[in-house]
């Protein structure tokens, strides 16, 4: 077991190394440099451009810059943002991360609270009106592009009805629209999954046996069905840990939330190498850990699965 974890972690390190190397190389392949953004419309001479380029070490070949980055990284230094003239990247991440995490946490909590019971109920009361309507809702929820519902909600609730603020962060009202958009998507995915998993469990022998033994339906459902049905659900949640970022890129853009997603896309646009690098690095760690934890939880819940 311990050996297994160590092996997986070592593999994870290799993955992290390769991913960051690839990102770094790609970013430097892109034409343009953050210096162009820094100087803006100032009346610059080539000397000034050269001075700035040199100051930030951009005159050296990219692999050399990567090694410098890697060295700093190992000492826990994420570097500085060029575009934000020297603000430590770690500080930028610390400012942006809570915003993204909160958005995800709230929407995920809402999604779980609604989708899992709904999914189980739909499976138990199969072919009922509830089953049909919730599954129609879920299918629709998957099909709606989240940036588009975001826009539509802004039109309806912020502009026409004026009940809610249209964007930005601050008060609790600011959370409602983006959380609703994120939750819609997650709810749809989770409800479908839960229903599918529950249906499968319901038809397994031990459930039939339990029912035959005369256990009450509710007991069966809670003690046997739900527990087993949650397995694939947890797996998906674990695997999707890293999707925290991608889910919010678009939503943060629509609602002007200063979170990680927007920071990421802005930094790519401005070729703010250090920031992109740091976000990708953290993301990869999340992916590796998410994968590992999921496998472990999986093994814990279902002893039939042995870890090779």
């Amino acid at each position: 077991m311990f050996q297994y974890i160590v092996r997986r972690l070592l593999q994870g390190l290799v993955v992290i190394f390769l991913v960051t190397l690839a990102t770094f190389g790609l970013m430097h392949l892109a034409p343009g440099s953050p210096v162009d953004i820094m100087i803006g419309e100032a009346e610059v001479s080539q000397e000034v451009i050269d001075a700035i380029t040199k100051k930030w070490g951009l005159d050296r070949p990219w692999y050399e810059q990567y090694l410098v980055w890697l060295g700093n990284m190992l000492r826990g230094d994420f570097g500085q943002s060029m575009v934000r003239t020297g603000v430590p990247v770690s500080q930028m991440l610390l400012e942006a991360a809570p915003v993204t995490l909160k958005l995800n946490l709230y929407s995920f909590a809402i999604a779980v609270l609604i989708a899992i019971p709904a999914g189980v109920l739909a499976a138990v009361r199969r072919y009922s009106l509830f089953d049909y309507s919730s599954m129609v809702g879920a299918t629709l929820g998957v099909a709606l592009p989240n940036f588009w519902i975001g826009l539509m909600l802004i039109i309806i609730f912020a502009q026409k009805l004026r009940w809610l603020p249209s964007g930005g962060s601050g008060s609790w009202q600011h959370y409602i629209l983006p959380v609703a958009v994120l939750a819609t998507e997650q709810m749809a995915v989770l409800a479908r999954l839960t229903r599918g998993a529950t249906v499968e469990v319901l038809h397994q022998d031990f459930v039939t046996t339990a029912r035959a033994k005369g256990l009450a339906d509710v007991t069966v459902i809670f003690r046997h069905v739900v527990r087993n049905a949650l397995l694939p659900v947890i797996t998906i949640i674990g695997y999707r840990l890293a999707f925290i970022l991608s889910g919010t890129i678009v939503v943060e853009t629509v609602f002007a939330w200063p979170g990680l997603g927007r920071l990421f896309i802005l930094s790519i646009d401005r070729l703010d190498y250090q920031v992109v690098q740091a976000i990708v690095f953290l993301l990869t760690i999340l992916v590796v850990i998410g994968n590992l934890l999921t496998d472990l939880v999986y093994a814990y819940i279902d002893p039939r699965i042995r870890i090779q």
Partner: peptide, 22 residues
């Protein structure tokens, strides 16, 4: 398989944005 697992867990949109921008 390890490669596939990693790619599956990696948010596609992030990859897409990086590649499309570059």
């Amino acid at each position: 398989s390890r490669f596939v697992d990693t790619l599956l867990a990696f948010p596609t949109l992030v990859l897409l944005i990086v590649l499309a921008a570059i």
